[in-house]
Every structure is written in C-alpha cells, then in structure tokens.
C-alpha cells in the first residue's frame, strides 16, 4: 500500500500553471526523492500533497483514501507531516513552545520533548531560547524534531539543505537515513541531488511541471545534469 499517491496532479498559482499531470507514489517504509531544477514544481507538488494547495485537477491519496479538499490541519492530525522550505519553525516562539505546538496532533508534550531530545540532544540546551536566534542548522533540527515528535506515518521534507553549509546538510541527512531505517516513509525534495540520492530508495526528476524520469537513484544520475543545466 502506498502511503501517499499523487495521480495526474495539475496545479496553478494565480494564473501561472505549475504542474501538468504529476504522478508520484511513496510506498510504505521507503524514501522517495523528488528532484529537479528551480521552478520545476517540486515544492508545489509537496504543498498539494500536504493539503496546502488545491490541485486544479487530479487526486491526492493518503493510505489509499482520497483526501482532496481535506484541510491541512486534519491531514497533520492523520500523521502527514510537512516540513516546509526555509525552516518550518516559529521564529518568535521558544524551542519549548515550538515543540509544544506539535501537541495539537495528539501526542503528549512529555513524549514530544523526550523524542526530540533523544534525536537532537542539542535542542535540550536551547530549550528556552527563542527559535529565531538559533543557528540555521539548529533551526532545521528543531523543524525536524517537531515533525518527528508526533511519530508521523509520512514525513515530507522540502529543501532541507536550503542555505545550510554542506557539513550540516550531511549531518541532517544522516538523521533522515536513520529515521528511514526506523520505518518512516519519507518524501524529500532537494536541490543537492547527490546527497539525497544516497538516501533514497526511489527518485523522480521533475522538469517544467512534468515527471521527466523516475526510477532507482543509480539509473538517474546521468539525467540530472541535463535537467539542471541543459548540458
């Protein structure tokens, strides 16, 4: 059974068409990477999956059930967790308060804190600090901690590496790999293609709002530079 499935998704912002019939499957307990150049429609596909953006046509299925039109907070309560591009945190709230917001999904605060500290011990030291004052890497850790604290069925990561130094990106992806080993399904969008290809079970390249190529990571490496630089 697929945890998430997009079927023939078309989507537009204002009057700008972004997606033209995207099909994508995230099987249970697997990591799927969605790759592609700027403006190809990666983030939009994720937003559609998380219920933040309504597709103009096509279906979104979560665990086999059609969820078009279900509000994002309901999807979140059903175990679908999106960590959006550019730090999914509330910068003016403290680390503690950021974690506490997750208790809306039904997990108790104590459990959330415990899980967060287990995976990211550094957050414990920063517990009462305002999230906006954390370093970029710590902010991203907080975003991931919040996402993972609820024990989601599907974790969606959008540009985890945006604006971060490569060494921190590697550290973060080690955690992603670990989470994947624990059996959480992950859909990840990333510009740093090679980093993510090391973690992914499946990958798809999206160009101009269409899936240009999909398959095992090893099969795709050569297609990437063409998709990105036209070379």
């Amino acid at each position: 059974m697929n945890v998430l499935e997009l079927r023939g998704i078309h989507a537009a912002y204002d009057r700008i068409d972004v997606l033209f019939g995207v099909d994508l499957e995230v099987p249970e307990s697997s990591v799927v990477a969605l790759l592609g150049p700027n403006g190809a429609g990666k983030s939009t596909a994720l937003r559609v999956a998380a219920g933040l953006h309504a597709p103009s046509s096509g279906d979104v299925l979560v665990a086999g059930r059609r969820v078009n039109g279900v509000r994002p907070e309901e999807l979140a309560r059903r175990g679908l967790c999106l960590i959006p591009e550019g730090r999914g945190i509330f910068p003016n709230l403290t680390v503690r308060e950021n974690l506490r917001m997750m208790s809306y999904t039904g997990t108790s605060e104590a459990v959330i804190d415990e899980r967060a500290f287990l995976r990211f011990p550094r957050l414990k030291e920063r517990f009462t600090q305002t999230a906006g004052t954390l370093s970029g890497g710590e902010q991203q850790m907080l975003a991931m901690a919040r996402g993972l604290a609820t024990d989601p069925a599907l974790l969606i990561l959008d540009e985890l590496s945006m604006g971060l130094a490569p060494i921190i990106v590697e550290e973060l992806y080690e955690i992603v790999a670990q989470v994947a080993r624990e059996g959480v399904s992950i859909l990840v969008v990333e510009q740093f293609a090679s980093t993510v290809l090391g973690v992914a079970d499946f990958a798809a390249i999206i160009v101009h709002g269409r899936i240009a190529r999909a398959g095992r990571p090893a099969e795709l490496r050569d297609d990437l530079s063409k998709a990105y630089l036209g070379a």
């Binding site: 510009q191 293609a193 090679s194 980093t195 490496r221 990437l224 530079s225 990105y228 630089l229």
Partner: peptide, 14 residues
C-alpha cells in the same frame, strides 16, 4: 562549482 551548486557536493564524482 556550478554543477556542485546545482546538484550537490558529490555530483561530479558519482
């Protein structure tokens, strides 16, 4: 450097 920026650090040595 451009390939690295677009494709990630290890892109050129697959």
């Amino acid at each position: 450097a451009v390939l690295a920026a677009y494709l990630g650090t290890g892109a050129t040595t697959p």
